[in-house]
Computed example of a mutant assay.
Amino acid sequence: MLDLLPELCDHYPQHVRLFPPIFKRFGGRNIFGGEVVTIRCFEDNSLVRTAVAEPGLGKVLLIDGGGMSRRALLGDMLAQKAVDNGWSGIVVFGYIRDVNAIAAMDIGVMALGAVPMKTDKRGLGDRDIEVNIGGCVVHPGDSLYADANGVLVADEPLSIAQQEIK
């Protein structure tokens, strides 16, 4: 199946919530999904570093950076840690850097765009909280799916998606 999200929208229209169509693909994995782990941080990716160092178990890290474009919340070193630790993907409501290196990695990455400036490391932010991405409310433990058509979430895993992502 090349286009997962249209299939999910066709089969589960009442169960999915769509992110606004503002995200671009950056990772080497075109289709990804899994249980959501949420982080909210602004120009400080300390919590991102901590999360990707943990076993990902096929989960998706959702980083709410408030759409800020001055600092990249993900770079190649953290993306590689996520690959090494089994994360399925990372979605950043903000910006990333090292896009050529990330494009070669076996992980799904979606973000608003790229900016070369790294973040400060002050240990600020919140983890495992409800976030709102362009009107789409996401809770830790929701299921997130992404492909070239965009990003969507559901309250629980969707069987068609689970078969395709495996």
Rank of each mutant, 00 (worst) to 15 (best):
D3Q: 15
L4G: 11
L5M: 15
L8K: 11
C9Q: 15
D10F: 14
H11K: 15
P13Y: 11
R17Y: 08
L18N: 13
F19C: 14
P20E: 14
E35A: 08
T38G: 11
T38R: 08
I39D: 05
C41W: 00
E43S: 11
L57C: 11
G58Y: 05
G58V: 07
V60K: 02
D64M: 04
G65E: 03
M68F: 10
M68K: 10
R70K: 11
A72N: 02
L74G: 01
G75C: 03
L78V: 08
A79F: 01
Q80W: 09
V83I: 04
G86R: 02
W87S: 02
I90A: 03
I90P: 01
V91P: 03
V92S: 01
V92E: 00
I96S: 01
R97A: 02
V99E: 13
N100I: 12
M110Q: 05
A111V: 01
V115M: 07
K121F: 05
R122W: 10
G125M: 01
R127I: 06
D128N: 06
E130M: 00
G134C: 10
G134W: 09
V137L: 09
D142G: 02
N149K: 12
A154T: 10
A154P: 08
D155T: 07
D155P: 04
E156L: 06
E156F: 10
E164V: 13
I165E: 04
K166E: 00
